[in-house]
C-alpha cells in the first residue's frame, strides 16, 4: 500500500469521526457479519414510526412509539453466500434478516448494511450506488446504518472522484441514483443546536476492509 493511500485512509477516518461516525477496521467478511449482528443485539429495539399491521409490538420507545419485538437487519447488497451466512447468524438471535422489499418496513428497521463504491478522505464521505431502491432504503430507514468501505478505494477529495461519479451516474439504461453520504442524518433547525437522526439513521458505522 502506498504512503499516499495510508494518508488518505487516516484522513478519511479522522474526518468520519469528526461527523460522529463509528469507525472500525475489520479483516474478514465474518467480522462484518458479526459486527452487524452484535450492533443489532446491543441497540435499543427499533421504534415503529408508523403502524405496521400484523407486526408484534413491544413497550413504547423513547419517542412514545411502539417498538419492534423482532429486530430487523437489512443487507440487500450482500452476495447470496454472505447473505446466507448473515441470515444464519440472525436466525440464531431471532432477528429477521431481509434483502428486498424494504418499503414494507418503512416504519423503521434496526440495522441496514450497505457497501460504498469509494470513500472521500477530505470529508469522511462515502459514495454509494443507490439506484436500487432497496440498497437506498437500507441507508435511509435504518436506525443504525453500517457501511463497508474498501481501504484501497479512498480518494483525497471531491474533484478526484468526479470521473467515478460520471461513470456511476451513466450506468443506465434507466435512471441512476448516486449518493454521497457523510455521517448520520442531522439538523440544527431548532435554535441552531445540532441533533442527529431527523429522518435518516441515528447512527452511522463505517467498517474499513482491506482490498
Amino acid at each position: 500500500m502506498s504512503e499516499n493511500n495510508q494518508a488518505c485512509i487516516d484522513k478519511f477516518v479522522e474526518m468520519a469521526k469528526a461527523v460522529a461516525c463509528h469507525v472500525t477496521e475489520v479483516s474478514s467478511t465474518a467480522d462484518i457479519l458479526n459486527y452487524v449482528v452484535d450492533l443489532c443485539e446491543k441497540k435499543a429495539p427499533c421504534e415503529l414510526l408508523v403502524d405496521e399491521p400484523g407486526t408484534a409490538t413491544g413497550p413504547l420507545g423513547p419517542n412514545r412509539c411502539p417498538t419492534r419485538v423482532q429486530r430487523i437487519v437489512a443487507a440487500p447488497q450482500l452476495s447470496d453466500d454472505d447473505f446466507a451466512s448473515l441470515k444464519a447468524l440472525c436466525d440464531e438471535k431471532g432477528f429477521l434478516c431481509i434483502r428486498d422489499n424494504l418499503r414494507k418496513y418503512a416504519a423503521g428497521i434496526d440495522v441496514g448494511l450497505s457497501e460504498a463504491i469509494l470513500g472521500v478522505a477530505a470529508s469522511g464521505t462515502c459514495m454509494c450506488d443507490t439506484t436500487n431502491e432497496d440498497w437506498r432504503l437500507a441507508g435511509m430507514i435504518s436506525e443504525c446504518a453500517v457501511m463497508i468501505v474498501k481501504k484501497s478505494q479512498i480518494y483525497p477529495d471531491l474533484p478526484s472522484i468526479a470521473g467515478f461519479m460520471r461513470e456511476q451516474m451513466g450506468k443506465g439504461p434507466e435512471g441512476t441514483f448516486t449518493s454521497l453520504i457523510t455521517g448520520p442524518s442531522r439538523t440544527a433547525d431548532i435554535e441552531c443546536v445540532g441533533a442527529v437522526g431527523v429522518h435518516g439513521p441515528l447512527e452511522m458505522h463505517l467498517l474499513l476492509v482491506e482490498g
Partner: peptide, 8 residues
Amino acid sequence: RLTSYVSW
C-alpha cells in the same frame, strides 16, 4: 465539510 447527503 460536506452535508450528510448529496443525492444525484
